[in-house]
Simulated assay, not measured.
Amino acid sequence: MVSWFKEHTHQRSHHYLFPSRNLSSPMPTIQLRPSSARGHGRQNWLEAYHTFSFARYRDPQHNGFGALRVINEDVIAPGSGFGEHPHREMEIFTYIIEGAVEHQDSLSNTEILQRGDLQFTSSGKGIWHSESNASKDRNHGTPLKALQVWIRPSTSELEPAYYTEHFSDADKHNTLCHMISPVGQHAEGTVPINANAHVYAAIVEPGREVVHRVQGMEGKRRKVYVHVLMDGNTGAVRVEVEGGEEVLRGGDGAYVRGVEEGDEVRFKSTGEGRVEFLVFDLA
């Protein structure tokens, strides 16, 4: 898989971290988004955690981040799911943590996807789809655990499109795996998105570190959001920029503001077990 990252072992310095930063620019900041403060809903077939305002959960302080509009962490019971429903003007993907999802849509796509598969829908002018747990045995089946992510497109009235790509655990092992990149800057092996956004995933062992170099244009401010999966592991990750650091555990997120092209955001696994997380690099 294409990756824009490598590990660094040398000493950090202000000059190295931000080689092109205007010294009059404010330093980046990190704001923790603790899992305990997220929205939480439970039905007889669904348990959902909402990072941003969604459905009945409303928090004016957390309505999205740049083009990133929704991060829902869902646990769907066997034999259940979201029935056919419409979407428009949204880029939507499903990141499977455990189990399998059955997808059907009005473009005649029908398939079952498992861990490692990234299912991506560009809803454009309009599309109908359904997403359900592919395990049908309500008594003995496997729950589906997945992230549902929505990103606003930068161009409207596009024709809907559907993509799938596989990114194995090995592709993410102690590195940041580039999964999604913008149309016009599309990186080989990634899924194209109609937004100025890059998405990465990593699975990092204790004591190891990976580094993200912010994408974009020189001098243009960017935002980075980090989300740690609720995967039952004992991992944690320390997120660090020149302006500070935060330690994130399962379900936690962090807003990183004030970064520019070329700035580095560092992620070090500090827990007892591996940690899996997604990184969103946004205009």
Rank of each mutant, 00 (worst) to 15 (best):
P206Q: 08
T9H: 15
E111P: 05
D252P: 00
N109F: 04
L147I: 12
F120D: 00
F267E: 02
L144Y: 09
G83D: 12
N133V: 01
I180L: 08
G243P: 02
R152M: 15
K145H: 11
F167K: 04
A48W: 05
L229D: 03
W150N: 03
N133I: 01
H166G: 06
F120V: 04
G189V: 07
Q11S: 14
E165N: 15
E102K: 14
N72E: 13
E131L: 02
G258Y: 04
P182Y: 13
G99D: 06
S154W: 08
E245M: 10
F277N: 06
Q61G: 14
P26D: 05
Y162M: 00
E165G: 15
S123L: 10
E218C: 06
Y16T: 13
Y200E: 07
G83Q: 11
V275K: 05
P26E: 09
S24P: 12
V183P: 01
H186F: 09
P182E: 13
G207V: 09
D231M: 05
Y95L: 10
A195D: 01
L32D: 01
S132A: 12
P60N: 11
L118Q: 04
V265M: 11
L158R: 10
Q31E: 10
S269Y: 09
T175P: 08
H87D: 04
P192T: 00
D252N: 10
E272D: 13
M230Q: 15
Q104N: 12
Q185T: 11
A134Y: 02
V149Q: 03
V149R: 01
K268F: 12
R274L: 12
G243R: 01
A55C: 12
V75G: 01
H87Q: 05
F277L: 14
E73D: 13
G66D: 01
G243I: 01
K172W: 02
Q11T: 14
H10L: 13
S269A: 15
V279C: 07
E98T: 15
F54Y: 08
G244H: 02
R208P: 04
V256S: 01
R21G: 03
P19N: 05
E272M: 15
V256A: 03
E218T: 08
W4H: 13
R38F: 07
N109C: 07
E47M: 06
L46H: 11
L23N: 11
H62Y: 14
R266F: 14
N233K: 13
G253Y: 00
V75I: 09
F93V: 09
R42H: 14
S35A: 13
E218V: 07
F167V: 02
Q119N: 09
M179R: 00
S25R: 11
H10V: 11
T121K: 04
S130I: 04
T142K: 15
G219C: 06
L176F: 04
G41R: 00
R21K: 09
D137W: 10
R12L: 14
E47T: 12
D59V: 06
S106L: 05
N22G: 13
T190A: 09
G251V: 09
D231G: 10
W4I: 10
G141N: 02
E240L: 04
R12K: 12
E131V: 02
P86L: 06
N109K: 10
R222Q: 04
T121P: 01
S181W: 05
G216H: 07
W45Q: 07
L158K: 07
K145F: 00
A170F: 14
E276S: 15
L229A: 03
V265R: 10
G258A: 12
V237M: 06
E159H: 01
